[in-house]
Write a protein that binds this DNA or RNA. Structure first.
Lengths: 210, 210
DNA sequence: TCACAATACGGAGGCCGCCTCCGGTTAGCA
DNA sequence: TGCTAACCGGAGGCGGCCTCCGTATTGTGA
């Protein structure tokens, strides 16, 4: 993560991770078996959501994780909770990809990030159905991811604006909304989406003559 | 409908309509009670999908239509079939709205139609989840709707291109893909979407200097 | 090392929606 | 009026959702 308030929670890949960070005082650090099962559930869920979509059967996820449904529901009371847990990880990965482009041309750096944004999203449509919905929503987890995305992308747009390449009257919210929308295009190849993205982004540098 | 191969089937509003047009020779014109039930089902479905989303319970739709589930499934073997039947009607309405703008400025006429497109879609997100998926897909019904939309919108874009307002190298498929994507933006007010749409459409008239 | 809470596990069970199947009903023709 | 093809409706099998509670495991204090 770059700056940004660090999206929070979501146990890392390592098995012995610190799966704390709920909201309250957190009296106990989660028992060993619980920690293990939680991780297995997240892994199974990530796989299932990726290949079957956000509607993947929770019972099936539990089976894949070699865990009873009860356990699944204890860790993640709702499908939404599970979806979020997985998706927070993903967002982090996306956001870090914004770093290290400081030396490129502002416009190119910006376009490149949005390219990655779209590619990235393409591989997890299911998860991102939720993620897209977060732009503008104020649920706690969403809020954090939303912030992370802004922290990653806004500077890129600002730089292109300072540079004069992007017209001054566009706002990042609108741009991210636009790109989010384009991510939802169905039945289009990556190249097709990229072409559309280029076209739409060109709107950012159109200088109204009026 | 303008030109276009007339989207087909989907019984009109009038109760005594000719609900034929399946695919084959159609030996019988559908019995009176069947015709009535079919209409009730479509009405109930339209309402249910609009207010509960595309996941609305089919059993509930049958109940609302005061018909057994069996009847529902006989008329519409799959949820998809029902969705399509309802959605064909909707697309027709959208397409006809492209007519009568021949006297406006090409750019304005085009923008206005896409505005309507987005507004229209906004009120039936559920249905249009399917519709959006149709751009590029080749299922029979989809094909027809797809054609109808192209027949309605393509001339508008072509006119703006002939006019020189829209750059010559954009293709209608891409434009409709772009707008379709924007329709999917979540949690945004109509004005916000309109702003994004304007921004994206400006990309069509950006003249690359290179 | 042992014993005993505190925690966590897992799956049976109630509920609901999907879809199929078939005995009973009805429209419409002769 | 009688007959039959066409149609109706809902019971029933299946699978997913979620809850509840008896059983198993962990880890801590003696």
């Amino acid at each position: 993560m770059g700056r940004a308030s660090g999206v929070a929670s979501a146990a890392p890949a390592a098995p012995a991770a610190s799966a704390d960070a709920a909201d309250g005082p957190c009296p106990r650090p989660l028992r060993a078996d619980a920690k293990r099962n939680r991780q297995q559930l997240m892994d199974a869920a990530r796989a299932a959501f990726t290949e079957r979509g956000a509607e993947a059967s929770l019972e099936d996820i539990a089976r894949r994780a070699q865990v009873g449904v009860g356990t699944l529901y204890r860790h993640f009371p709702t499908r939404q909770a599970l979806l979020e847990a997985v998706y927070v990880d993903e967002v982090e990965a996306l956001c870090t990809s914004a770093e290290g482009s400081a030396d490129a041309e502002p416009w190119d750096a910006m376009v490149a990030w949005f390219d990655r944004f779209v590619d990235y999203v393409a591989t997890k449509k299911a998860l991102v159905d939720e993620m897209m919905a977060s732009v503008g929503k104020d649920a706690p987890v969403f809020r954090a991811c939303h912030d992370a995305i802004f922290a990653a992308g806004e500077p890129l747009v600002a730089r292109a604006q300072a540079d004069g390449t992007v017209r001054a009257d566009v706002e990042f919210v609108d741009v991210i909304r636009m790109v989010s929308g384009l991510c939802m295009i169905k039945n289009a190849s990556p190249e097709e989406i990229r072409r559309v993205l280029r076209m739409a982004l060109d709107g950012l540098r159109f200088q109204p003559t009026a």
